[in-house]
Amino acid sequence: MEKILINYIDAEFNINVSEQPIVMARLKLAAENAKIELSRNPYVKIEEDHLTQNRDGDVHLSFELSRQDFEIAIDHHLQKTMESVTKALKDALMLPSALDEIILVGGSTRIPQLSVMLEEKFGILPHQEIDPDLCVAMGAAVQAGREMGVESSSILLDITPYTFGVSTLGYDADGNPTPHRFSPLIRRNSKLPTVKSEAFSTIVENQDAVEIVVYQGEKPNALDNVKIGNYLLKLSPQPIHSIVIIKFSLDVNGILKIEIIIITLLI
């Protein structure tokens, strides 16, 4: 939504506001309010007086957006949401026919097109009478009570929605050598907290460094995933095929800690 407003201001007033923090903060708030309004009405008018200035003076924003144009703009996000729904069912080893009801959770599920897509996919009309924000608050309250020792009939498990791993030398799906094979350590849907480790090896004689490049995602090619960070570990010269153990620890707050252990082969 902010991108729509930025592009409109650029075209209408010949000014790029993306590097103006105060303007961007106002546009973010206006965009959020507009998204809420579009969940109830087919059109919304966004007005922000004295938003910024250009060479002609003050810039006053007045922009009307239709729900249809908004849904076109976010279509890729909607498609990704549906892909996540399919993936969740697959992880749970469930067929779509096993679903009895659909409950929308989270404020963004108020977007009408999402309910339409879910009904088309599963043939079930999602519940509209349940407050999607209240669901989130109630879940957080149950989780907080559980961590404080309060008994509850509900059971919530912290899991990671992503797979974490490293980039290694290996072979792709076609059997071709690649320097960017994604080697998972912590798999998606693992219960938190969790600790996983995997053994790798040095590839040249007297190797004196190891670069650990951490990715988040599900693709076999590491470059197709999200890069989290990279770490260059200096070593004393190691014989070829020395063992490098990489240990990932992921806590309930989603904080990933990495430990590296080198085992030198004695020849």
Results as ranks from 00 to 15, higher is better:
residue 181 R to A: 15
residue 173 A to Q: 09
residue 199 A to V: 12
residue 166 V to Y: 04
residue 228 I to F: 02
residue 50 H to A: 12
residue 101 E to N: 04
residue 62 S to C: 14
residue 22 I to R: 13
residue 217 G to I: 07
residue 126 P to M: 05
residue 231 Y to I: 13
residue 111 I to R: 02
residue 201 S to T: 12
residue 133 D to L: 10
residue 266 L to I: 11
residue 251 D to H: 08
residue 242 S to P: 10
residue 196 K to I: 02
residue 179 P to D: 14
residue 259 E to T: 11
residue 148 M to L: 13
residue 216 Q to K: 15
residue 106 G to R: 06
residue 218 E to S: 11
residue 231 Y to S: 02
residue 152 S to L: 01
residue 96 P to K: 09
residue 4 I to F: 02
residue 82 M to E: 11
residue 203 I to H: 14
residue 11 A to G: 05
residue 201 S to A: 12
residue 62 S to P: 01
residue 146 R to A: 07
residue 79 Q to A: 07
residue 219 K to E: 15
residue 184 P to R: 12
residue 196 K to H: 08
residue 263 I to L: 13
residue 146 R to G: 15
residue 141 A to W: 03
residue 142 V to F: 14
residue 246 I to D: 01
residue 35 K to Y: 01
residue 132 P to Q: 08
residue 213 V to Y: 00
residue 62 S to D: 11
residue 67 R to D: 00
residue 159 I to Y: 05
residue 148 M to D: 11
residue 164 F to H: 14
residue 264 T to R: 15
residue 219 K to W: 03
residue 84 S to C: 09
residue 68 Q to S: 11
residue 79 Q to E: 13
residue 263 I to P: 00
residue 139 G to S: 07
residue 200 F to D: 09
residue 196 K to L: 00
residue 104 L to R: 12
residue 197 S to T: 09
residue 109 T to G: 03
residue 5 L to N: 05
residue 141 A to N: 04
residue 148 M to T: 06
residue 111 I to M: 12
residue 180 H to R: 12
residue 4 I to W: 01
residue 214 V to P: 01
residue 101 E to Y: 06
residue 28 K to I: 01
residue 160 T to D: 04
residue 239 P to W: 04
residue 105 V to A: 15
residue 6 I to Q: 12
residue 231 Y to A: 02
residue 34 A to C: 06
residue 78 L to M: 14
residue 267 I to Y: 04
residue 14 N to W: 06
residue 225 N to M: 08
residue 190 S to W: 00
residue 81 T to H: 10
residue 259 E to S: 14
residue 254 G to H: 08
residue 191 K to R: 14
residue 156 L to W: 08
residue 23 V to H: 07
residue 112 P to V: 10
residue 241 H to P: 00
residue 79 Q to W: 00
residue 225 N to H: 07
residue 197 S to A: 06
residue 266 L to E: 11
residue 84 S to D: 07
residue 76 H to I: 10
residue 267 I to T: 09
residue 17 V to I: 11
residue 260 I to S: 10
residue 99 L to E: 06
residue 38 L to P: 01
residue 175 G to Y: 08
residue 4 I to G: 01
residue 249 S to C: 02
residue 10 D to C: 10
residue 188 R to S: 13
residue 247 K to Y: 01
residue 203 I to T: 14
residue 204 V to L: 10
residue 200 F to I: 06
residue 199 A to L: 05
residue 53 Q to L: 07
residue 250 L to A: 05
residue 84 S to E: 09
residue 76 H to M: 03
residue 237 P to M: 07
residue 116 V to P: 00
residue 10 D to E: 15
residue 12 E to G: 01
residue 215 Y to Q: 05
residue 250 L to K: 06
residue 150 V to L: 15
residue 238 Q to S: 14
residue 90 K to T: 13
residue 226 V to C: 02
residue 131 D to T: 03
residue 128 Q to C: 03
residue 96 P to S: 08
residue 232 L to P: 00
residue 115 S to M: 09
residue 13 F to K: 07
residue 175 G to V: 07
residue 84 S to W: 01
residue 245 I to N: 13
residue 241 H to S: 04
residue 18 S to N: 03
residue 224 D to V: 00
residue 123 G to I: 10
residue 140 A to P: 03
residue 87 K to F: 08
residue 57 G to R: 04
residue 217 G to S: 08
